[in-house]
């Protein structure tokens, strides 16, 4: 009996040691790697170079995800035809809208009796010049899904040119280090960061922005789109907060992850970014 117990204990101890190794070793490795990789300037660079690398060097892979690799294909353009605007939209959904906050207002006592002095020529008549909205037509700056053929191929050419120049400039080392996918997790994280930051309206315009940190959890499809609605962590606390700025910070974070999709992340690392936690916390 003692012998059996001894064997069991020994097994359990071994298992624990193995388990501990399994738990801690990867995190050591990860720390070292990310510490090694993440100079901030490189982050943006790496996002571009990684994307470009996977786009331009054909890498025979079967490529089952069309989205990320659309650029490679010399545009046969069957591409999932993203919203040709008129889109019949068979859902004119009749007013489910709640009458929500519809404040009826009293007839407005016509404030302007304008006590202009009984002067002749009373008005300077400054021509109510509206502060020119400077609308900037820019109708398609972001153009999330519409593939614009010419500019896309231009981009590809540009990418190739750039890569060639880079190679001829003997920057191979950097290129390899960044683009070779040696630091997978760090690079997925950096890619994610560099994409989300462009969509996030930071709360720097609100009082005490350092106190407006929020966290959003998302799950992603292989093609970089959201698998389901983003989940604001502690949603009740954030959205019911007496601090209205915190509520708006929560909304802005959710909007950022919605706006930014589809995310362009290395498909071979899908298991790592299938589920992402984004901590939105402005660093001052």
């Amino acid at each position: 009996m003692r012998k059996v117990l001894g064997i069991v204990l020994s097994l359990a101890l071994h298992a624990l040691v193995l388990g501990a190794g399994y738990v801690y070793l990867p995190s050591f490795l990860k720390d070292l790697e990310s510490a090694h990789i993440v100079p901030i300037e490189l982050v943006t660079l790496s996002s571009h170079s990684n994307v470009r690398a996977s786009a331009q060097t054909p890498e025979p892979e079967p490529e089952d995800e069309p989205d990320i690799d659309q650029p490679i294909a010399p545009e046969p353009q069957p591409v999932e035809e993203p919203q040709p605007q008129p889109e019949p939209e068979p859902e004119p959904e009749p007013i489910p809208l709640p009458p929500e906050q519809q404040e009826e207002r009293a007839p407005e006592p016509e404030p302007e009796p304008e006590p202009v002095q009984s002067e002749p020529e009373p008005e300077p008549q400054p021509q109510p010049r509206q502060p020119d909205p400077q609308p900037e037509p820019e109708p398609e700056r972001r153009e999330p899904q519409r593939p614009r053929e010419p500019s896309l191929s231009d981009l590809l050419n540009l990418a190739q040119d750039t890569a060639q120049v880079a190679r001829s400039n003997n920057q191979g080392e950097t290129q390899r280090q960044v683009g070779a996918g040696t630091a997978n997790t760090a690079s997925a994280r950096d890619l994610m960061f560099s994409q989300v930051r462009r969509c996030w309206r930071e709360p720097a315009d609100m009082p005490n922005p350092e106190q407006l940190g929020v966290t959003v959890n998302i799950r992603l499809e292989r093609n970089g789109t959201l698998a389901d609605a983003p989940r604001l962590q502690d949603e009740n606390r954030v959205m019911n907060s007496s601090n209205r700025y915190l509520r708006i910070a929560g909304e802005r974070a959710v909007r950022a992850v919605l706006d930014c999709q589809p995310y362009h992340l290395p498909p071979e690392q899908y298991s790592e970014w299938r589920s992402v936690t984004l901590n939105f916390q402005l660093s001052l």
Binding site: G19, Y22, V23, P26, T185, A188, R189, M192, F193, V196, R197, R198, C199, W200, R201, E202, A204, D205, A253, A256, S271, E272, W273, R274, S275, V276, T277, L278, N279, F280, Q281, L282, S283
Partner: peptide
């Protein structure tokens, strides 16, 4: 259980978004 926890933790990518824009 320990292994399950570890793999679950590994599947979660954590990203700190520390800067955005104010356009």
């Amino acid at each position: 259980a320990c292994l399950a926890f570890v793999s679950a933790a590994q599947a979660q990518l954590v990203v700190d978004v520390t800067e955005g824009h104010l356009e």
